[in-house]
Design a protein around this nucleic acid. Structure first.
Lengths: 341, 341
DNA sequence: CTGTTAGCGCTTTCAA
DNA sequence: TTGAAAGCGCTAACAG
């Protein structure tokens, strides 16, 4: 039995198996040039002692990697990002790598601290959903040979691989669909234009309106909501306008959910009937969207695939070693699903 | 400028600052016994080079810890678990620790592999939502001085700290509430009884029925659904019975969502009216529960707090060093919220 | 096929 | 207040 609190080392395994540490090391690395019966003894000793090779000690040797990928996302609790993280984890696990996960809460300073910590832990690479326009910590990572892949959002002035959604196109198509359905007064609920996705989705929305000769009324645009509660308040304001919009475009799931909560609330209070509420278009699908009391359509996409793609871009660059590879900018397609049932 | 692909070491920082590596080390560890002006020079060199102390090299020295916590959960994409992970991450970050996150997909073998990998990376401790009754990998971890905290589920025969919900009590109260509302035919949708929470919630449900003299009809019990799709099928079977239940108790969010999807679907198909569908009681709150077309109540709790508590239990044990501390078994309360609006 | 040597980046111990 | 030496666990490179 192993003594409590002791972690066995190669030496102990070697001793127990009656070989040198090198033979243990070789056995554990595939067993080239080790006699089968000796391997057996080594593996038996490993099992008996519950030995696990110290990956940290291993990683400090030149040419060795830590097998760690640092993942910095803005909000783990948002299903969109947690599903994204799942995608990264799965793809990383395929190569035996693990993810170090950190939450930035949309705070650039926290992101920078997190990245610094990740570098200290010698991650092989980073997958980041950038919280803001800051780039220093990311370029520093790149300079030290730790590649960075941006996901969901890009940042200006940083030459890094990235995978984002077709935000502009998706928002454009969503808005066009509403216009085609006869709407001319369309509200907009989104996150701040300072954020990559917020800006692009807003741009797509505006392009659709302009193209169809519909004026963009500032009163109908609310683009500062990051939480469901904020979104709900903004939705309330839109719904309570004397000349309320007949449709609302929600630029992300937080805003869609806030809008539905408010619509549901007002509906249950009984002041208006269903037909008096606007139709909803949501950029982001979400669980139970089909329960919406008003017709709802979604600009759908696959956050898990977004995560997988981010990981793949990173792994590809890692495989290339230090060789310079052209920066990859991937844009994943979105699909319009009308009137989710 | 740092050369691409080079990570600076203490030596380089020392050279640049004109001191020995030890002085750099001391400065970075708080600066005791280093003259202020020397510290300035060191820190300047650190900043110029973008130096990050190699935590892996650091951790191999005796008495040093990696500052890593291994977190193994069964399904990152489930909001319940991702919110749980957020709680762990937050609490860990307070002590400067990071989490290594792995998904087990309810697979014990994968969990064992994950734990082995975590041990190899010299985690300070583990937070595990156990996928099954297997304990070998967990006792091995404990034997090597790496404490384990179980969350959401316990496993028999393992003396480890744990934090779980008041499953039995919550299910009991939920069922009693349905009975008090006049229901005598109550369906049950849950995950398998082989899982800790499944067994306990089912037990609470059954206890309520028995206590009130209501027979437990096997036909009304479906307890094998792990996914929303499976839950939806099981719900369909219940709804389509000639003598369908007037209420359904759903033992977790996957089952609640599956049930609501099916109810919504049948409702929109127009074969029955709203009042012909059963009322729903959901163990687990979830986003947009209030949009349910039928009355819904929830057995509510706080997965983030569950994560925080798990992390706190672990940190407390780590603080105690190797000293033996009594095993802590925490049970977090749940609250009944009737007729969510 | 196996073992010895040396050294990765860091910090504890001891000496100055 | 500073530095030199030694060694943590591991594995390339070189013997044998």
């Amino acid at each position: 039995m192993t003594t409590r609190g002791r972690r066995p080392t190669v030496k102990e395994v070697a001793q127990r198996a009656g070989v040198s540490p090198m033979t243990v090391s070789r056995t554990l690395s595939g067993g080239v040039n080790v006699k089968p019966d000796v391997q057996q003894r080594v593996l038996a000793a490993v099992a008996e002692l519950g030995y696990h090779r110290n990956e940290n000690a291993r990683s400090i040797r030149p040419g060795q990697s830590s097998g760690l990928i640092g993942v910095a996302i803005t909000n783990i609790a948002n299903p969109y990002y947690s599903t994204f993280a799942l995608g990264v984890e799965e793809e990383a696990a395929l190569t035996g790598r693990r993810i170090l996960l950190g939450n930035t809460s949309e705070d650039s300073a926290r992101e920078a601290a997190l990245v610094g910590d990740f570098l200290g832990r010698r991650v092989d690479g980073l997958v980041v959903v950038p919280a803001g326009p800051a780039t220093e910590h990311l370029t520093q990572s790149q300079k030290q040979g730790v590649p960075v892949v941006l996901a969901s959002r890009r940042v200006e002035g940083l030459a890094a691989d990235s995978v984002v959604l077709s935000d502009e196109d998706g928002a454009y198509r969503g808005a066009i669909a509403l216009i085609d359905a006869g709407h001319t007064r369309i509200g907009y609920l989104g996150n701040t234009l300072a954020i990559f996705t917020g800006k692009r989705r807003h741009a797509g929305f505006v392009r659709a309106l302009k193209e169809r000769g519909i004026p963009v009324e500032p009163d109908l645009i609310a683009a500062e909501q990051q939480t469901v509660e904020q979104a709900r308040e903004a939705a309330r304001a839109l719904l309570n306008m004397s000349n309320a919009p007949t449709a609302i475009f929600c630029a992300n799931n937080r805003n869609s959910i806030g809008a539905l909560k408010e619509i549901n609330h007002q509906l249950k209070s009984g002041l208006k009937t269903v037909t008096e509420f606007p139709e909803v278009m949501s950029f982001d699908d979400f669980e139970l969207a089909e329960l919406s009391p008003v017709p709802i359509s979604v600009v759908d996409h696959d956050p898990r695939e977004l995560g997988r793609t981010a990981a793949r871009l990173l792994l590809k660059r890692l495989d290339a070693g230090g060789e310079s590879v052209a920066v990859q900018e991937v844009e994943l397609p979105v699909s319009l699903r009308m009137h989710v049932q």
